[in-house]
Design a protein around this nucleic acid. Structure first.
Lengths: 233, 233
DNA sequence: AGCTGGTATATGTATGAACATATTAATAAG
DNA sequence: CTTATTAATATGTTCATACATATACCAGCT
């Protein structure tokens, strides 16, 4: 019955959220169909569709053809994490970024890496160990393997001035990847590099990127003690 | 000059990704404007817009009015984490979910919680400690504070059968929240609950949810040893 | 130089109409 | 009673068109 004219998709999204919030539409409820909402809000179905689609992508709504749109039972608490370049991450917290290459050489990867990157036995690949610092204090250990057979250019890079992290972003397009977060007790070597006690809990991010079926790189980032990864929703 | 007819937004998104991938368009490059792409792909600008908008949301492209669209310099490695109900998380790995309430009482929160939830001194709020199990083995410790002044219904719940986690999803609408991930050395109490050695590194997720300016709940989830949070991109 | 205002331009949004597609519900065949 | 077929329907997508809006660029002024 054409009560309001919130005729922008942002306005409609806000109104729908508000109705979910004030429990006019409760979790699990079916909400009116697009045409009816369009009439009520005094806009076209296209606009309603845009608003509802965004909410469905965010996990707030669930939509099915013919059935209709309902409020999600578990609002999928989706958090989107931005994984920035370490350099940017350090700059963002107002500290001075530093980088130091510790090791760079071709060697046989351990079984774990061999499996993850699908490297045959006896094949040497590029291993890089580096330290990123914030105000000259250890910030992150970058322990990286690069498949130089897939990425021949990488063999010409010495990674002395700039981290592999940065070079890869510009020069290694990927199709997909995996990422995992975990907590581990730091090894003696890592503890030494980070100037912490051996065994101290540290936050680790492991990332694998692929070019179709070929693994490009595997990196394990070990963060300074007390590091927190934050986001909002 | 109308070479192909990939005239669906998904097709166009794929084609654009492919061109970025094969380095026809390199990071930082300006790509043709919507109208030109529409002509080339033999579709309307609306469709191109949809494809490019999605890619911009994903962080692959950066768009500015008048300037145009360019390939992101740092493809914002955005990973979207789905934070499911613990029950669903356990079921997903094919294990039997269990829940045990350890403690539930009104008490004075420590300073840390008081600050985060903006609770005045001397005010008691609801504290819940519970253990979630997978195949009868400890999986997650849920250490939660609920502001029962904002959420009066919560005081009537005993949380014996179902976790606060589940009740809140259905009964506590929120406007926004924060989430943080970290690694810590487990305390003696948590180690005991999780049947691990005190000091072992454990993964922690801390979440705060708000109803406008009022904090609804603060929860700290401490996961079993070796837990990994995974996602793909 | 620096500031001001105007203009051109690429993206952003809205519309109504049309057709596509998934899925439910009704119906007919076995 | 069960299963295959068909119709109905809500969302999904595309289109041509129009207008809105941010902003880069330029001209003219101080």
């Amino acid at each position: 019955m054409r009560l309001k004219t919130i005729n922008s998709w942002l306005g409609i999204r806000a109104e729908v959220l508000s109705r979910i919030y004030d429990r006019t539409w409760k979790p699990g409820d079916l909400i009116p169909k697009e045409i009816d909402l369009a009439f009520e809000f005094g806009c076209s179905r296209t606009t309603v569709n845009r608003a509802l689609r965004e909410l469905a992508e965010a996990g707030t709504l669930e939509r099915r053809r013919k059935s209709g749109t309902r409020v999600s039972l578990n609002p999928a608490n989706k958090a989107t994490l931005k994984i920035p370049l370490i350099k940017n991450e350090v700059n963002k917290i107002g500290k001075t970024y530093g980088y130091k290459l510790i090791q760079r050489k071709l060697c046989l990867p351990p079984d774990k890496i061999k499996n993850k990157m699908r490297i045959n036995s006896g094949i040497k690949i590029l291993h890089i160990l580096a330290l990123h610092t914030a105000n000259d204090l250890p910030f992150v250990i970058e322990d990286r393997w690069i498949n130089q057979h897939v990425l021949p250019e990488s063999e010409k890079q010495n990674f002395k001035e700039h981290s592999a992290n940065e070079w890869l972003v510009l020069n290694a397009p990927y199709t997909h990847g995996t990422i995992s977060f975990s907590a581990i007790n730091s090894s003696a070597e890592n503890a030494h590099l980070l100037s912490i006690k051996s065994g101290a809990a540290v936050f680790e991010i492991e990332r694998n990127t692929f070019d179709k079926e070929n693994a490009i790189t595997n990196v394990c980032l070990t963060y300074e003690r007390g590091y927190r990864m934050l986001t909002t929703f």
